[in-house]
């Protein structure tokens, strides 16, 4: 196994250094890794398993159990469409469909140019503004399919 890892592991080392090397740190470490790389690269998982002394199979099991983790590279901008109950009855489904028409991808898919990933999430706790869509860090309340181009163009940037 002398193969060179294809991702930069220095960020992983930094993250690992800030947690106790034991199993309870696993989820927290994976969350930081996910934030740093935008997904969980395989090489990183191997390293995490080794350092925390957790079997790789268990690391993989945790990585696939929780919704927050992806083993595939994600787009630069993550679009989250809330499909909580309040959003559902106020038309969240139409937002997902409009995204499919606009970007050609469905839920949990990423555009080929790695620009966008569409995710449906179970309630972001902003039910009063249902339906809600989050483009990057920007929340759009009472979102309407007809305004989708605006959301996509302005997402990520925090301007009103």
């Amino acid at each position: 196994m002398a193969e060179q890892p294809c991702v930069d592991l220095s960020k992983t080392e930094e993250i690992l250094a800030s947690y106790p090397h034991e199993e309870p740190s696993l989820i927290q470490v994976l969350q930081d890794v996910h934030r740093a790389y935008n997904y969980l690269p395989c090489d990183v998982l191997v390293r995490v398993a080794m350092v925390l002394d957790v079997p790789l199979a268990k690391v993989f099991s945790v990585s696939t159990f929780y919704k927050a983790f992806s083993l595939e590279p994600q787009g630069d901008t993550i679009i989250k469409v809330c499909t909580g109950t309040a959003c559902h009855i106020r038309g969240a489904g139409q937002l997902v469909e409009e995204l499919e028409r606009k970007l050609g991808i469905g839920a949990d898919e990423t555009t080929e140019d790695l620009k966008f990933t569409v995710k449906t999430v179970n309630c972001v706790g902003a039910c009063a503004m249902a339906p809600v869509m989050i483009v990057g860090e920007k929340y759009w309340g009472s979102a309407k399919p007809a305004r989708m181009s605006k959301y996509l163009a302005e997402g990520g940037h925090d301007e009103n």
Binding site: T83, T85, A86, H88, N122, C123, G125, C127
Partner: peptide, 11 residues
């Protein structure tokens, strides 16, 4: 707080 439609704990 996982129940969709609830956000009291968040607040």
């Amino acid at each position: 707080e996982g129940d969709p439609g609830a956000f009291k704990d968040r607040s």
